[in-house]
Structure formats: structure tokens, C-alpha cells
């Protein structure tokens, strides 16, 4: 199914210092956006990152895309440590596509310059090569050739997302981090972009880190799913297993909310009450316990670790009572 490891995170945490302290300031505040996450992505593999808004998906995606330096933990790239030289290569090998196609393209640049920008930044192509590459990519993402000389404001949301994808493809990357690439688009456009991404993956042996708050979208594209809750991975499983036999109570609740034909309804987890707590003050023990229908006394004091579920080597969950 998948090839060599491209990128790995080992025990990565991202904390945001929200100020405070100082002469007249308030108490120092730390926002724990990502907490001790370990993941790997291999060549040609599509890994989904799923969770509610604010669960730390984008922050994690930024770490992979090199936009966010982790507070602690280690990164590995192609099996080696992530040093300066490795980042230089990784900047070509890993590209990003964002959620809001209106913010993703510089309104002052013609499309040809936008698409070829990574090549310009990395200094890997001459101006003529860049133009040729832009023309080739514009066709690959299904836009007419005359789009090259136009400006972003002349395009619709879906077309802009195609341009953003073309830019991500420019340096011929191995991995694309796509941060909710569909959520800002009309439903009718969503499937077109999804199809395009699928087609490109097949053609170019791409790996995706596909971020989504919606499990239903993920079911079409991905190989594996990591479920994120309050900055922690609570379940990590191949897609089929996760959808058929969710192990963590949170995953079960999420699935229960997804309308899908022929799905087994998870026992006692049809809905979760309340809202996700603030990452400024995560609950002690298992962070899910205030909302968990299965919570016991131990959950309030002891944090569960991410381990394979009983009898399912490929499927891990962080729960004292995983199924």
C-alpha cells in the first residue's frame, strides 16, 4: 500500500505563550494546542487528521509544513533528523494547500507567477522554465491555458483552489498538507476538487496529510485516520477499521453524527454533550472525561496512552476502556 516514510513526528507538542507576566500583567498563560503527538506519513499514503475546530489540526499541519516550530518533540524527514539541510530539501518535498482560496492567492500576482512561485523562491528554475511549468500545471488541474495571464479576483472559489493546488504541485512534491481544502467551497464544487486530488495522487504517487473536521469527507480519499481531540491523538487506525469498529468513545460519537448507510451504531455514544474544553486549561487525567459517556473514576486522574486496541494490531486508541 505505501512506501518509505517521508515525515515523522515523535512526541511533538506545540504550546502558545499568550503573554501575561510583566509588571502589571496577568498570570502567564500557556495554550496547549498540540500535546505529545507521534505520527508518520509514508510515500503515496493519505493520512487524515480529523477533529473538532480548535483541536489543533491546523497547528499540526503547520508543523509538518514547516510554518510552526514545535515546542518539544522531534521531527524526522526521510529517516534522518530534521536539521537545516533536511528542511531545505523538505521545503521542496512538502507543500501546503489551505482552506480559504480567497486568502491563498496574492491578489497582486498573475496566476502564472503564483503557480511558479515555489520554484522562484527555491531558485530551481529559470524564468522560461517557470513559465513552461506553470502552463503544464494549469492544464493538469483542469484550468484553461489563458488563466495564466489573469489575476485571482477573476476566478471562483473552486478555480482558485485549483490554482492553489497547481502551486503546491510546482516543485514536484512528495507530500501535500491540505488544511481543510474543501470546507470553504460549495458542496457541488467539493467533489470536483476531491476528484482532482484523487486523480493527482494516482498519477503522481502523492502523499497527502488531509485535514478535515468532517469524517464523511475523509471516507472517500484516505488510507489512515488520526482523530485529534484537544491537541492529542485519541485514535489512529486504517480507514476501514475506524469506520467499521471505532475504538475510542470520541470516535464512536463522531461517527454517530455522520449519516451513513449500513453503519453499525455505536453503543451508548450516540451523542456527546457539551463543548471541547479550552486548551488553556485541559482537564486532568483523560482530557475527554468531562464529555465521555463511559468515564470512570480512573479517567479523572490517569491519562490513557495511545496503544493498539485489544486484538487489533493496526488500530490504536488512547482510552482506558477502548473497544
Amino acid at each position: 500500500m505505501s512506501g518509505a516514510e517521508i515525515f515523522a513526528l515523535d512526541g511533538v507538542s506545540v504550546h502558545f505563550d499568550l503573554g501575561g507576566g510583566g509588571l502589571f500583567g496577568r498570570a502567564r498563560k500557556t495554550l496547549r494546542a498540540v500535546e505529545h503527538v507521534s505520527l508518520t506519513i509514508a510515500d503515496g499514503e493519505t493520512l487524515a487528521l480529523v477533529g473538532e475546530s480548535g483541536s489543533g489540526k491546523s497547528t499540526l499541519g503547520n508543523v509538518v509544513g514547516g510554518l510552526q516550530v514545535p515546542t518539544s518533540g522531534t521531527l524526522r524527514y526521510r529517516g534522518g533528523p530534521m536539521d537545516e539541510a533536511a528542511w531545505k530539501r523538505a521545503r521542496r518535498d512538502i507543500q501546503m494547500v489551505f482552506q480559504d482560496p480567497f486568502s491563498a492567492l496574492d491578489p497582486r500576482m498573475p496566476v502564472s507567477a503564483i503557480i511558479a512561485e515555489p520554484l522562484l523562491i527555491q531558485g530551481t528554475a529559470t524564468a522560461a522554465e517557470r513559465r513552461a511549468r506553470a502552463a503544464e500545471l494549469v492544464r493538469q488541474v483542469g484550468l484553461p491555458l489563458d488563466a495564466l495571464n489573469r489575476y485571482p479576483h477573476e476566478f471562483s472559489g473552486g478555480q482558485r483552489q485549483r490554482i492553489a493546488i497547481a502551486r503546491a504541485l510546482a516543485p514536484d512534491p512528495a507530500l501535500i498538507v491540505a488544511d481543510e481544502p474543501l470546507s470553504a467551497l460549495d458542496v457541488s464544487i467539493q467533489s470536483q476538487i476531491l476528484n482532482l486530488m484523487q486523480e493527482l495522487r494516482e498519477r503522481r504517487k502523492l502523499a497527502y496529510l488531509f485535514i478535515s473536521h468532517d469524517l464523511a469527507v475523509v471516507n472517500h480519499l484516505v488510507d489512515r485516520v488520526a482523530v485529534l481531540y484537544l491537541g492529542r491523538v485519541v485514535e489512529l487506525a486504517p480507514r476501514a477499521e475506524l469506520f467499521a469498529t471505532p475504538s475510542h468513545p470520541y470516535t464512536q460519537a463522531l461517527l454517530a453524527a455522520v449519516p451513513r448507510i449500513g453503519r453499525r451504531r455505536a453503543r451508548g455514544a450516540s451523542s456527546i454533550k457539551g463543548e471541547m474544553p479550552s486548551p488553556l486549561a485541559p482537564p486532568p487525567g483523560c482530557v475527554f472525561h468531562p464529555r465521555c459517556p463511559k468515564a470512570q473514576a480512573v479517567c479523572r486522574t490517569k491519562a490513557p496512552v495511545l496503544e493498539p486496541a485489544p486484538g487489533r494490531a493496526a488500530q490504536s486508541a488512547a482510552c482506558h476502556f477502548k473497544e
Partner: peptide
């Protein structure tokens, strides 16, 4: 804006971002 973040992800430094 995401276009700046995309440029940074591709390795753009602060001077490139300011100029471009």
C-alpha cells in the same frame, strides 16, 4: 494571509515576503 504562509512553507524568507 495564506499566500504568505504558502510562500514561507516553500522556503521564503522575510525579505522575499516583504518585497514580493
Amino acid at each position: 494571509r495564506d499566500f504568505v504562509r504558502a510562500a514561507r512553507a516553500s522556503g521564503a524568507g522575510p525579505f522575499y515576503v516583504m518585497r514580493a
